[in-house]
Design a protein around this nucleic acid. Sequence first.
DNA 1: ATTATAGGTCACCATTTGGTGTCGTGTCAA
DNA 2: TTGACACGACACCAAATGGTGACCTATAAT
Lengths: 108, 108
Amino acid sequence: MSENNQIRDAFDAIADPTRRRLIRLLAEAEEIPLHELTAQFQMGRTAVSKHLTILKEAGLVLDRKVGRETRFRLNASPLREIQDWVAFYSKFWSTNMLRLNQLLEEEE
Amino acid sequence: MSENNQIRDAFDAIADPTRRRLIRLLAEAEEIPLHELTAQFQMGRTAVSKHLTILKEAGLVLDRKVGRETRFRLNASPLREIQDWVAFYSKFWSTNMLRLNQLLEEEE
DNA sequence: ATTATAGGTCACCATTTGGTGTCGTGTCAA
DNA sequence: TTGACACGACACCAAATGGTGACCTATAAT
């Protein structure tokens, strides 16, 4: 269960702003077909399809064919890795750390 | 204060595994000069320096010159944006959402 | 039956990315 | 003062990235 099909890094997948917008759009609806997603962007269908492929490779998106359309939906769970990663560094942006940086700055 | 010098996206900066390792190394010490960082990788000094430049452009790293060496240190605060972004989606990987996905899967 | 829609696939392209080696300069050590 | 070290800057390169348009097939609508 919960197969590890992740060809691609989640960090890599969310690096592109277009793909983050796709994730956002898919979060706001159950399922969205490609042509409807494409309508939200200025680029062509092929480009959007490529971005969705990358999201699929990272396990962030699932798709199913319904009639002649391919509907996409979000699978957010790979984002857990991102959250775990960033949580580790949350202790480094406390006010104490900011003050330390300021002190080192003024030292020279 | 806390100037917004971010030429580059933090999402972009953390996409590369080498840069994430740099962030980790810098989190474990106060300051590390370039040559010492370079020793941790298999690539050359120029490549590591380029990665650090990218981290600097994202505001994730600060540097100061001391003698003939350039010492780098972590400035984690831009990671806050990442945390805020990913926190929004945490509600989508609850067990309920996973079950819903399974149901949609079995539907066809 | 014909036409329009949806989308996969492919070839193609410009730009960016991630690495290399070299050269020049400032700094520390002998 | 001579040499070794640390580094920035630059030219260069292969591969990945992010986009395009054209073609083909499957499905839906008329």
